[in-house]
Computed example of a mutant assay.
Amino acid sequence: MSYQKFFATSAMALLLGTGSAMADTWRYAFEEAMEEVQGKFAQKFKEEIEANSDHEIQLFPFGTLGESDSIMEQTQSGILQFVDQSPGFTGALIPEAQVFFVPYLLPQDTATLATFFEDSKAINEMFPPLYAEQGLELLTMFPEGEVMMTTTEAVAGPEDLDEVKFRVMTNPLLVESYKAFGATPTPLPWGEVYGALQTGIIQGQENPAFYIESTKMYEVTDHITRTGHNNFTTAVMANKEFFDGLSDEDKSLVTNAIDAAFDYIIAYQEGLTDASLAKVMEAKPSMTITTLTEEQRAPFKATAASVEEEFLKIGGDQAGAILEQLKADLAAAQ
C-alpha cells in the first residue's frame, strides 16, 4: 500500500470512528490547497457557518483524504458532508456536467461569468436533479479563472500540439477537446503530473494561472499559452441524505454561507490572474507567456463545433436541453 493510500485509509477510519460523537461537526474536502481558490472558498464557508451557529467545519485540502475519486466516494457514502470538485471529475458520474469542457463556450470576462453562474437556469434548475441521482446536493458552481496551457515547447497553433502528450482530467469530453486541438490527451491523477512533466512522460497540462504558480508547474514547463478556450469551473456539493436531514434553519444556514462564499470568491479573484503570472515571471524570468491573437485562436475555435457534437452524443439524456439552456443563460448574462 502506498503512503498516500495508507494515510487516506487511516484518515477515513478516524472520521468514521468520530462521526457519531461529533454530530455538529461537518467535514468538507476540496481539490486544492488551503491558500488556493477552492481553499479560500472553503475557509469563507467555514467562517460563515461557525459565526452563525454552534456547528464546526473541518476542512480537508487536496491530498489529505486521497485523490478526487476518493473524496467523491467519501461524500456519496456520507463520510464527508461537503465536497468541492470540478465537473472534470464528476463528468463520469454526471455526463451532462461535461458541457463545461466545450471549448470557447464560456466567456473570459469575470463580471459576465459571475452573473452567469449566479443566475443560470441550467445550473440552478436543471443540474440539481442530475446531481441528486448520484446522492449529491448541488449547492453552487463558480469559476476559478482562465484556463491556460503550460508546455515544454511553444504553442502558436494546433500544429504545435501534434504528438504532444497533454495531461487532461479523466473526462471523456476534455479528451475529445484536446484530440481536436491536435494533441495526444493523457488522463493522469493530479498527484502524478509534476513528475510526469519532469521526466518527459507528458509535455503539457492546463490550469488557471494561480494554480500554475502555486503548484510550480512553471518549473517543469517553459511556455504558458493563453488560447482563451475555457474558464475552470468547480462545484460545491453536499451529501444529499445529510442535507435533506437538516432542519430548515440549518439548510438556510448552509445556503446563506454558500452565497457569502460565492460573493467573496468572485471578489477575491479580481487581479489574481495577473498577480499569479507576475509571480511566475519573477520565479522564472525565462518563462514565456503568450496571448494568442484572434487570428491564431481561429483554428482552435474551429474545433468547438465538433466537440459540441461529441458532447451531444456522450453528454447524457439531457445534453441537448442543457447546452441550449446554457447558451441562453450566457446570452442573458452578456
Results as ranks from 00 to 15, higher is better:
G245W: 03
K251V: 03
T303E: 04
F181N: 11
M12S: 10
Q85G: 00
Y131M: 00
D329L: 08
G88P: 00
A209V: 07
V220H: 08
A278W: 09
V193S: 14
S10G: 05
E56P: 00
P208E: 13
T290C: 10
A132V: 04
E125F: 03
Q76P: 02
A13Q: 08
E133H: 02
G320A: 13
K40F: 00
G17V: 02
F101Q: 08
T150N: 08
A209E: 09
F311W: 10
A156C: 03
Q4R: 08
T288N: 03
L174N: 13
I265G: 02
D162R: 12
P208V: 13
P185R: 12
S86F: 00
A267R: 13
T291V: 14
T303L: 09
M12F: 04
P285A: 03
E50Q: 11
T110S: 13
A97G: 04
M281S: 13
F300T: 00
A114C: 02
F300D: 04
S247I: 10
A11N: 14
P185K: 04
M148K: 15
F181L: 12
L326C: 10
I314K: 05
F60V: 02
G39V: 13
F242D: 08
S247L: 14
P61N: 06
E270V: 15
I289N: 03
G88R: 07
T288D: 11
E137K: 15
F30D: 05
T273V: 02
V37Q: 08
M287S: 10
G316A: 03
L246S: 05
A209L: 09
F181Q: 11
H229V: 07
Y3K: 12
T115L: 12
E146P: 06
E294N: 14
F117V: 08
F60W: 14
D69W: 07
E73D: 15
P95N: 12
G135I: 03
Q318K: 15
A304Y: 11
T152R: 08
K301R: 14
M281R: 11
Q108N: 11
A111R: 09
H55P: 01
L161Y: 11
N256G: 15
E308F: 11
R297Q: 13
A33P: 01
A298R: 14
E47D: 04
P95G: 07
Y264F: 15
A23S: 15
A238K: 06
E146H: 09
L326K: 05
G195L: 09
E96M: 10
F232P: 02
A328P: 07
G88Y: 10
D329K: 10
D250F: 01
V147D: 12
F41Q: 01
K44W: 01
G157Y: 04
M148L: 15
A13Y: 06
T233G: 06
T225G: 08
I202D: 05
D244C: 01
